[in-house]
Computed example of a mutant assay.
Amino acid sequence: MTAPLLALSGLASAYGQSQVLWDVDLMLAPGTATALIGRNGVGKSTLLGTIMGTRTVTAGRVAFDGADITGLTPHRRARAGIGYVPQGRHIFPHLTVMENLETGLAARGGRGSGGGGVPDHIFELFPKLRDIRDRKGGFLSGGEQQQLAIGRALAGEPRLLLLDEPTEGIQPNVVQQIEAALRTVRDRLGVTILVVEQYLDFVWRFADGYCAMDGGRIIRQGSTATESAADVAHLVQI
């Protein structure tokens, strides 16, 4: 059996005195895509932040590629190979598209292709970014900003990509482009993907499996090949 790339064991996290995650166990195999689903406010974004290190672990363990990274800062986790696209994109509005992409290069550390520049495959995944590479981030549409945010994360050549609501507020044609890009990122680049998403039909088209959360816990896991999005949505009351 292939060793997991990411393994969470008894993970808990809190905001001050308010606990948000409870005893989360999760394993992600290399080169797979997993949908993290559930109603608003059940802890999905907090779980991504805890994996990335932007939220404090109060109990449990985060292991990445067999190494315990529970105590690592976010930038050290990024250098270890974890990319993160937060909800709301958070691109730099006063930097150009190319400058935004170049900020992602720092995450490589000593890893990656060693070429030094933005990888060509980012422009193959999102051709529009090449066309608007000199435009300031603040003048982009929502769909362009989302493509830029994903491209910036991929510039660090991660082995694990965390995405929080990538289709939120995005026009349908760009959703299709993002779906195709994520499929390529998994299949051709071998990147493992964990994506928080409310639009279940979108993730069911490319994800291998799903994890459903409620009340800060994972309450159900399964395969997208054997369970339909509609049935799962009904069972977990999304």
Score class of each variant (00 low, 15 high):
residue 38 G to Y: 04
residue 112 G to Y: 02
residue 170 I to E: 03
residue 83 G to E: 11
residue 31 G to V: 06
residue 238 I to G: 07
residue 193 I to N: 03
residue 17 Q to Y: 04
residue 85 V to I: 08
residue 200 L to K: 10
residue 159 R to V: 10
residue 43 G to E: 02
residue 42 V to C: 13
residue 112 G to P: 05
residue 226 T to G: 04
residue 47 L to P: 14
residue 211 C to A: 15
residue 149 A to G: 00
residue 73 T to Q: 10
residue 34 T to N: 09
residue 96 T to Q: 07
residue 158 P to K: 00
residue 25 D to A: 13
residue 202 F to V: 08
residue 58 T to H: 10
residue 153 A to K: 00
residue 181 A to H: 02
residue 34 T to Q: 09
residue 228 S to A: 10
residue 95 L to E: 03
residue 168 E to N: 14
residue 124 E to Q: 15
residue 81 G to Y: 10
residue 172 P to D: 12
residue 200 L to R: 10
residue 6 L to Q: 01
residue 61 R to V: 10
residue 37 I to Q: 10
residue 225 A to C: 09
residue 138 G to V: 03
residue 61 R to N: 02
residue 35 A to R: 00
residue 74 P to F: 06
residue 40 N to P: 08
residue 177 Q to F: 08
residue 8 L to V: 04
residue 123 F to T: 08
residue 154 L to P: 00
residue 39 R to C: 05
residue 46 T to E: 02
residue 238 I to A: 06
residue 22 W to Q: 04
residue 221 Q to A: 15
residue 24 V to M: 07
residue 20 V to M: 08
residue 31 G to M: 06
residue 133 R to K: 15
residue 100 N to K: 13
residue 41 G to C: 14
residue 215 G to E: 08
residue 80 A to N: 05
residue 174 V to N: 04
residue 35 A to D: 07
residue 24 V to P: 07
residue 41 G to Q: 06
residue 188 R to Q: 07
residue 6 L to T: 03
residue 69 I to R: 09
residue 123 F to R: 09
residue 237 Q to Y: 10
residue 121 H to K: 04
residue 83 G to M: 11
residue 219 I to G: 15
residue 166 P to L: 05
residue 210 Y to D: 02
residue 237 Q to S: 12
residue 214 D to E: 15
residue 174 V to M: 09
residue 203 V to F: 03
residue 238 I to S: 08
residue 20 V to G: 13
residue 53 G to I: 07
residue 51 I to N: 09
residue 208 D to A: 05
residue 152 R to S: 04
residue 90 H to P: 00
residue 149 A to H: 13
residue 5 L to Y: 01
residue 236 V to M: 03
residue 214 D to A: 15
residue 85 V to K: 09
residue 235 L to C: 13
residue 20 V to D: 04
residue 1 M to A: 14
residue 23 D to V: 12
residue 159 R to C: 08
residue 209 G to D: 14
residue 216 G to M: 04
residue 230 A to Y: 05
residue 192 T to Q: 00
residue 189 L to D: 05
residue 27 M to N: 15
residue 60 G to F: 09
residue 162 L to I: 10
residue 100 N to Q: 12
residue 226 T to L: 12
residue 211 C to M: 10
residue 9 S to C: 04
residue 45 S to Y: 09
residue 21 L to E: 02
residue 13 S to Q: 05
residue 227 E to G: 08
residue 231 D to I: 05
residue 44 K to C: 10
residue 95 L to A: 00
residue 102 E to F: 06
residue 182 L to C: 03
residue 218 I to R: 00
residue 131 D to T: 14
residue 220 R to E: 14
residue 215 G to V: 04
residue 220 R to N: 06
residue 236 V to D: 10
residue 225 A to W: 03
residue 184 T to D: 11
residue 139 F to R: 13
residue 64 F to W: 07
residue 56 T to D: 09
